[in-house]
Structure formats: structure tokens, C-alpha cells
């Protein structure tokens, strides 16, 4: 009796545990026993991170699960999708595999060919997959976050490399040189501004001068006109002839003055030649003096002679003073 009780309890526990485990597992897998399903096969060159059990969605609504993934011919991968019987596939359907969140979960999306994101690689993969696919739907893998982050990482690396190179090139000395260049450019621009200001002032002056010149020209023209009018009036009075005769006389006087000037010039040339000779002789004398030749040369170049002369002069002054003081001592006037 006890053994039968043991067997019953044990059997009940084992059966209950198995039912519980299998039931919970099926519940978590969302398995449906006896429901009508349809199966669709899609062909891919690569399935990314998709696994058996991942969701299949149509227009964002879950419509089934990935049932199997297996290698096909010619390097293709065949993915069998288990869809609900009532689901209608879109026209010209394609299957896109992609991440459904940032946490590694993937899904298969059944969509129309026209709704595929505008991506060159995806379009090429779909075209290749559709060629010779038979009843299998063409499929492609959308670029996932990892690929995007890899590309972004590469870009960031390039930027870092450029920044590093810029940092190497733009060191302290480069910064100093750049600052110096900026300062020079500022000075140059200030100089240019100053020059422009000066030149504009000059231009103002020139324009004023030009204006004054134009006024003078205007006045001269008026004077010329007046002269012309006078000439015109003088012509009629016989004054021109007088002027011409006076002009002839003046020209004769100018010619005489020119002859006299010519004579004066010739006389000046002679004087100049004399002067040159005098200068040459004076130069030779000065040369001799400088070389210490002759008395003057000795006087100039020998300090002792100067000192002797000086002392002689001093003695002469003393003698003259003494003669003035005691003339009788030196002079005796005798008449007889």
C-alpha cells in the first residue's frame, strides 16, 4: 500500500514537473499547438545575427518566427519563416534582416520591394538574391548598429588622426609664428590704411592743384583771349608794326649782349686756367710744406723750431720792453 502511494505521489510529481517545464517553455517560445501555419523560405547571402526563434514582422506587426536557418547551394543561406496562416504577404515581397533594438535582438521584416530603404548594398543584395531564387523570397541584411558604429569609429579615428597631425604641425612655435604673422598683417593693414589716407590727402591736394591749374588755365585763356582781342584791335591801329620794329631792335641788343657774354666767358676760361696753375703750384708748395721741406715746412712740421721762434719772440718782446724802459742803455745820441 505504501509502495503504491509512493509510486502515485512520485508519478504525479514527475508528471506535473514535466508538464510545468514543457508548458512554461512553450509559453516562453510562444509555441502554438495545432494552429494553422504557413511557411515561407527566404534566401540570403548572409543572415547576420538572426537566430532561430527571432520574430518575423510585417509592417511592424509580429506575424511569426524564424523556424530554421540552413546553408543552401552556391553559398546561399535559406531561412524558413513560420507565419500565421491568415497573414497575407505584400506584393513583390522581400525579407530584410536587421536589429530590432540596440540590445542584440534581430528580426526578419517581410516588406514590399518598393519599401526597401534606399541603400545601394541592400538593393544589390536583393537583386543578387532574387536571381535564380525560385520560390524563395529574396532577402538582404540591413546594416546594423555595430556596422554603423564601426564606420563611425573609423571616421572618428580619421578625425583623431587629422587632429593629431594638426596638433603636431600647430605647436607652440607655429602658434607664435601665426601670432606674429597676424600682428604683421595688422601692422601692414594699418600701414596701408595710413598710406591710403595720405594718398587720399595727396589726391585731394592734387585735385585742388588741378582745380587751381584749371582755374589758372581758364584765366590764361581769358587773358589770351583779351590779348588776341587787343592784337586784333592793335592790328587795326598800326601798333603791330611798331612792336615788330621794337622787337628787331631788342633782338639786335640781345645779339650784342650775347657777343659780350661770349667774350666774358672766354676771359673766364683763361682766368680759370690761371687759377688752375696757381692751385697746382700752391698744391706743390703745400705738399713740400707737408713733407717738411723748406723753412715753412720745417716751421710747420718741427715743433722745436716753433718753440725756438716762440722763445725768440718772447725774448724780443722782453728786449723791446727793456729798450722802452731804458733806451739810454741801448741808444746813445751824439750830435757831435
Amino acid at each position: 500500500m505504501k509502495r503504491r502511494s509512493n509510486d502515485f505521489v512520485l508519478g504525479a510529481v514527475i508528471l506535473g514537473a514535466i508538464v510545468l517545464i514543457v508548458g512554461v517553455s512553450m509559453f516562453l517560445r510562444e509555441s502554438e499547438i495545432g494552429s494553422k501555419r504557413q511557411r515561407v523560405v527566404a534566401r540570403f547571402s548572409d543572415v547576420g545575427q538572426v537566430q532561430v526563434g527571432n520574430a518575423v514582422v510585417i509592417r511592424g506587426v509580429k506575424a511569426g518566427r524564424v523556424e530554421a536557418i540552413e546553408l543552401g547551394d552556391d553559398g546561399w543561406v535559406l531561412v524558413r519563416l513560420n507565419l500565421e496562416k491568415s497573414v497575407e504577404l505584400p506584393r513583390s515581397p522581400v525579407v530584410l534582416l536587421g536589429a530590432s533594438s540596440l540590445f542584440g535582438e534581430w528580426q526578419a521584416m517581410v516588406t514590399e520591394r518598393q519599401s526597401v530603404p534606399n541603400n545601394r548594398e541592400v538593393a544589390a543584395a536583393l537583386t543578387a538574391s532574387a536571381t535564380g531564387a525560385g520560390t524563395a523570397l529574396p532577402g538582404a541584411v540591413l546594416p546594423d548598429v555595430a556596422q554603423l558604429t564601426t564606420v563611425a569609429g573609423g571616421i572618428a579615428g580619421d578625425v583623431a588622426s587629422v587632429a593629431q597631425r594638426f596638433q603636431v604641425a600647430f605647436n607652440d612655435s607655429a602658434a607664435r609664428e601665426l601670432r606674429s604673422s597676424i600682428r604683421s598683417v595688422a601692422q601692414l593693414s594699418a600701414e596701408l590704411a595710413r598710406t591710403v589716407r595720405v594718398q587720399s590727402k595727396h589726391l585731394d591736394t592734387v585735385s585742388v592743384d588741378v582745380r587751381a591749374g584749371a582755374a589758372d588755365l581758364s584765366q590764361a585763356a581769358e587773358a589770351f583771349l583779351r590779348t588776341v582781342s587787343r592784337i586784333d584791335s592793335a592790328t587795326s591801329a598800326g601798333e603791330v608794326r611798331t612792336i615788330v620794329s621794337e622787337s628787331e631792335r631788342a633782338a639786335g641788343q640781345v645779339r650784342e649782349a650775347s657777343v659780350r657774354l661770349n667774350q666774358i666767358t672766354q676771359s673766364l676760361e683763361k682766368t680759370e686756367s690761371h687759377l688752375r696753375g696757381v692751385m697746382a703750384r700752391a698744391d706743390s708748395v703745400l705738399l713740400k710744406v707737408d713733407q717738411g721741406q723748406g723753412t715753412l715746412g720745417l716751421l710747420v712740421n718741427d715743433p722745436r723750431l716753433y718753440q725756438n721762434t716762440d722763445s725768440l719772440l718772447r725774448e724780443l718782446r722782453a728786449l723791446l720792453a727793456d729798450v722802452k724802459k731804458q733806451p739810454k742803455r741801448y741808444f746813445g745820441v751824439k750830435i757831435f
Binding site: 510529481v13 514527475i14 506535473g16 514537473a17 514535466i18 510545468l20 517545464i21 512554461v24
Partner: peptide, 16 residues
């Protein structure tokens, strides 16, 4: 061998 998985299986489901 047989009952530890039963106990652990039930524990799994209860824990979940």
C-alpha cells in the same frame, strides 16, 4: 539523477 532535475525544473518555473 532523476529527481534533482525535477526539483530544479520546478524551481526554475517557480523562480520565474
Amino acid at each position: 539523477l532523476l529527481m534533482f532535475p525535477i526539483v530544479v525544473g520546478v524551481a526554475m518555473m517557480v523562480g520565474l
